[in-house]
Design a protein around this nucleic acid. Structure first.
Lengths: 181, 181
DNA sequence: TTATTGGTAGACAGATCGGTATTCTTTCTG
DNA sequence: CAGAAAGAATACCGATCTGTCTACCAATAA
């Protein structure tokens, strides 16, 4: 649609993800993108709307990356390998589409917004649900136990990569899941 | 030591944990606690110092709660049960010492501070290390694989309880670990 | 008593916040 | 070419941020 609008979203996503939403003011997004304030408020009625657009952009990017990562993974063990090898690549900044790793944008954003009924918190929940669905599509159906296990290990691996600086969890998660299969 | 100082820390921890550090200003802490601004800057040189004191307070509370939760857990399976039943109680606000659940204060705080070399981010890492050590003390020694598994499941369960509003993970983690033992 | 300490209350400074309005220029379209 | 729309640049508004400072009060110690 509008080129300026997309530039704003791209700049906002980059800054919000790297430094946190409450730490980034509208003015910084404007100076970095080189776009006027009037133009921003022409496309978005408030900062919150821009935040939601950035979340949606990140969701689109992430789902596309995950879909590509899981492509042609048909057996459960293949899904596990491709998923956690993908996470490992993300953590070590080898997944260019996802940018420099600073944890999960949706976990981080949830942490900043305390009202769980806000649109922003709800969108973060939606994203996690979409990721879960995508993983489920590649797994043997009706194995919801395995799906739960994969999801909880995934969240743990992301959190430990960011907070603890422990990048070794994806490999360990694969070993855990091998034992369980 | 000083009574006012402790009141400030308690109020700050309550507000920071429930609403996030960047969302709470000094003035709100002062009006809620009923303490004068001069007194605050008598005890702390900056907001950052107060944040660090609040993190330390939360760490003390959490370690004490975890220590009590794991007391008399000597076999691995007992540790697993007590740990994840404890988490479940925390998530459903049955652990009074930990206050109303809003995720892990240290994960949330890490999400707000993007510089991983800041004192605040480092303290969050330290906390996770202390928790890991405490769990390790109750497990059979030199079983670092099990320790890793417990830790990654724990982080995943906390994240999913907060972001996804899924409180069922502790019970599922116990089942997973039963299979692995 | 007098001096000191630790507290309250609140004005103030300087910066930044999200958001609005104005003026001027560019660019696109009929 | 003419007119409309979009954008740039920037001043501005009221609110809020962290942190400093002054003035006053109460209790305590020398």
């Amino acid at each position: 649609m509008s080129k300026k609008r997309q530039q704003l979203i791209d700049t906002a996503l980059q800054l919000f993800y790297q430094r946190g939403i409450n730490s980034i003011g509208i003015n910084e997004i404007l100076t970095v993108s080189g776009i006027a304030k009037k133009t921003l408020y022409n496309h978005f009625t408030s900062k919150e709307e821009l935040v939601l657009a950035a979340l949606k952009q990140r969701n689109d990017n992430f789902i596309a990356w995950l879909d590509m990562s899981l492509k042609e993974a048909n057996t459960d063990i293949e899904v596990v390998n491709k998923l956690f090898n993908g996470l490992s690549a993300w953590f070590s900044n080898s997944a260019v589409e996802l940018g420099s790793f600073r944890g999960c944008f949706f976990i981080n954003t949830s942490a900043e917004f305390s009202d769980p009924s806000s649109k922003i918190s709800q969108y973060c929940r939606d994203h996690k649900q979409q990721v879960r669905q995508l993983i489920a599509q590649h797994l043997s159906p009706s194995n919801s136990e395995l799906l739960d296990t994969i999801c909880v290990l995934k969240e743990g691996a992301i959190t430990m990569a960011y907070v603890n600086h422990d990048l070794s969890m994806p490999a360990k998660c694969i070993k855990i899941l091998e034992k369980l299969l």
